[in-house]
Computed example of a mutant assay.
Amino acid sequence: MTATQLVAPVKGHSRRRAIAYWTATVLLVTESLVGGTYDLFRLDPFFAMLAPLGYPAYLATILGSAKILAGLTLSLPRLPRLKEWAYAGILINMLGAAASQIAVGNGPGDYVPPLVFAVIALTSWAYRPGSRRLSAPTVQPTGGAAMGRSAAAITSAAWFVVTGGVGAVLVPWWLTGWQVLRPLAWWSTAEAVGVVLILAGLVVAAGVFIAFVRAGGTPLPGAMTEHLVVTGFNRYVRNPIYLAAMTVFIGEALLLGQLSLVIYAIAVWVGAAAFVRWYEEPALAARFGADYEAYRRAVPAWHPRLHPWTPSDPEHPEVGNGDAGASSAG
């Protein structure tokens, strides 16, 4: 293969990334500036939506100002830290808008558009060029010293309670008020399946957290284990915590008979998949090198293997630092 053959795909890939970034960003900036102007001046149809959702009129002024600032920030060159804040604010606003529509019982025509713009925001964020990114911290391949087991246990337990409490308790309560619906006559069977799924998801999540503690690390990106750890559920799938969370959410949807929780589970999975694809996997590949690449080739990201994977190298009994191969919340 010639040098030209090697360079051409790279140029084509860069061109596709640039097209994806600018297409998504133009749409996002346009929505932010136009929507922000409508909100700031309390113009219909957007302003008329606030009262039925239970929000006060002055929220339009707050949202409009924030949207315009976010749109201007994304349209200007550089300013990488402000852009991170702008993306986070837009994503929170869009997900909150969708959740609000679902909470009051509105249909897909009301909650799908903000979800679409949330995906557009993630696309713009994922494909942004280097001049619009925060500088990545230097990654040490060896990972540094592992945490003490007590510190890892306390940190992991706190992370488990906080993320589980928000994701599996607070948000479902906000969406459903724990109201139980039985849309079909045989729904008691679905409820039983839901209970089984919830328990299974909790067992998997707890097992992965325990594996982190034994390896002297946590699921937090800043507290990775010293070595890749492929034990327990990580031998079957690279993202067991994310899959466990989805299992719990679907179980709650069946137990309560609430479609909104199915939509919530799908939205969370889309966000998790984007995070894994554009942050976790590159970070883990940079940190753990060939060991992680071997793990990623052998173990699927989202559908479990039928048989557990065992590393071929006997000198590396631990390969995979948690999820997406390692130490993030996956």
Rank of each mutant, 00 (worst) to 15 (best):
V204Q: 05
G177W: 08
F46G: 05
P77G: 14
S327I: 03
V169D: 02
A200D: 01
A66M: 07
G330L: 04
V112A: 05
G330A: 09
L27Q: 03
D323S: 02
I120K: 02
P304S: 09
A151T: 13
M94K: 01
F160Q: 00
A126I: 08
I19F: 06
G64Q: 04
T218W: 05
L181A: 15
M246N: 09
T4D: 10
F233I: 09
A253R: 00
L28R: 01
K67S: 04
P282T: 03
L33K: 04
L181N: 14
V171F: 04
L59C: 09
L220E: 12
E318T: 08
I266L: 10
S32N: 10
F212E: 03
S65M: 15
V196M: 15
V230C: 15
T4Q: 12
A146H: 10
A66T: 08
M246G: 11
G107S: 03
R235Y: 00
L59V: 13
Y264R: 08
G130L: 11
V208K: 04
P108V: 13
A48T: 09
L261E: 05
V169E: 04
Q140K: 04
A298C: 09
M147P: 02
R17M: 06
R133Y: 05
P221D: 13
H307C: 09
L28D: 00
L53V: 05
P221G: 12
V270L: 06
P221E: 12
V196S: 13
W85N: 14
T123Q: 11
G232H: 05
G96T: 07
T310I: 11
V161C: 13
D110K: 13
Q5S: 08
L259R: 08
L33M: 12
L82A: 15
A274S: 15
V270Y: 00
S32V: 10
A152E: 00
L254Y: 09
A223R: 11
Y111W: 14
L50N: 07
A185R: 09
M147E: 01
A272D: 15
V116F: 11
Y236R: 04
R132K: 06
V237E: 01
A215R: 04
L28I: 00
V299T: 02
S32M: 14
D39Q: 14
Y295W: 07
I266V: 13
V104H: 05
A152G: 00
T123Y: 04
W302M: 08
H227E: 15
T247A: 05
G143H: 05
I266N: 03
T231S: 07
A285D: 12
R182W: 12
A118G: 04
R297P: 01
A60H: 02
K83V: 06
P314N: 12
D110I: 08
P282I: 02
L74T: 01
Y236L: 10
E226H: 14
S135W: 11
V229A: 14
T247F: 03
A57S: 14
G251F: 00
R214F: 07
V213H: 00
Y55C: 05
A205W: 15
L259H: 05
L134R: 13
G64K: 01
I62Y: 06
V26Q: 06
A136Y: 10
L134H: 08
G105Q: 10
A211I: 09
G71W: 03
P314S: 13
A103D: 11
